[in-house]
Design a binder for these strands. Structure first.
Lengths: 97, 97
DNA sequence: CGCGAATGCCAGCGTACGTTTACATTCTGC
DNA sequence: GCAGAATGTAAACGTACGCTGGCATTCGCG
């Protein structure tokens, strides 16, 4: 999912956490943030600090990808051409809208 | 490119800005942030606020994508073992700390 | 070279972020 | 319906984020 606002990112993090069956307390401890902060982040607070956000996303094993329009996503290896990448991509069960 | 640290994100933003031939002043004005802040962000300051970060990325027409690995694909080097975390979570009687 | 733009960096200041603690509310399972 | 966890909020407080202004340094081009 492409992210445009803090609210969207928080929603994705919350969905991922719930999908993993984890509580805010567990994730907060794992990511090194307070439970209050995590709740605010999940609720879309725009002023949360980037480092903590990435810490939480990493703890949730969420992959953040940034690219310009028309660029490949998640270029694992420079030698890998986009066609193979897309084949692999389409082969995976990408549920979770 | 997949992002794991504020430094990486700042580097991507800087590269994109350069690719677009824009100065820090122009991008800062477009995104509604100060030039000092933009410089710090590009240099990997971890405490920058998420909302401003997304504003800059949007101004640079950078697409942020967040997704979870489909299955238990190659877990590169997760900083947190979620399996054992969930085990511990389900096993523990959840005592108050 | 030399000039100007671009960027890095410092000081000072107002403001609010993040933390802990506490309580209220919602959501579970029994 | 109840007990308990899970989550939402709020107050109080230390800290530093982000802003403006200024100046130093580097970069780019004539």
């Amino acid at each position: 999912m492409d992210i445009r606002t803090p609210g969207e990112l928080g929603a994705v993090a919350r969905g991922r956490r719930r999908a993993l069956g984890l509580s805010q307390v567990k994730v907060a401890e794992a990511a090194g943030v307070s439970r209050v902060w995590l709740a605010e982040f999940e609720n879309g607070k725009p002023t949360v600090e980037l480092g903590r956000v990435l810490a939480v996303l990493t703890a949730l094993e969420l992959i953040v990808d940034v690219s310009a329009p028309g660029e490949a996503v998640s270029k694992a290896a420079p030698e890998l051409d986009l066609d193979s990448l897309m084949e692999e991509y389409n082969r995976e069960p990408h549920d979770r809208d």
